[in-house]
Amino acid sequence: MQSEVMFAGFGGQGILLIGDILAHAAMEEGFEVAWIPSYGPEMRGGTAYCLVVISDRPIGSPIIRNPMHLIAMNRPSLEKFAPMLKPNGIVVINSSLISIGSGRDDVDELLVPANDIAGDLGSTKAANIVALAAFVARSKIVDFEILRQCVKKVFSSKENLISLNLKALEQGKEAAQVKNPGP
């Protein structure tokens, strides 16, 4: 069984970091993983994305044109990647910044106002962690407790950020429990 998760947004939203955290968590749980960053000429303010491949056997091609899941943190990312998704995946939409839906009726669409939730917690910078938590809670792709440990580890050198991000994790998890009314 192999899953591919695309994280996408604009530069500065912590896209590569949440991909990194998920890859670490999956590795800790014993899966084979590959983390592939957006790579190529890119301009300031452009899109940032990364792909995390998680599998229970050695990963063949790390090149995936049609990923299973998408975490879209801004509108251009959703518009670019939603049409490429395989059916039956999960699409997390940062509804604080994105006013449209995925336009797909064959995916599990989860609207998470990640920036608003993170802003209420004290910093919109944690919006990425809110979205990651919502995705993991919904997909159960890795154990949530392992994810929590990985988040702690990533922020271990910035102790003041640990409690913010742990709260962001909980709020994201809660946001995933809500059944969305749909677009």
């Binding site: 990194d20 890859a23 590795m27 084979e32 993983v33 590959a34 983390w35 592939i36 960053p37 790579y39 990963i59 790390p62 090149i63």
Partner: peptide
């Protein structure tokens, strides 16, 4: 470039 840029365990 891909081997250089990707992360694997």
């Amino acid at each position: 470039g891909l081997i250089g840029q990707m992360m694997e365990p």
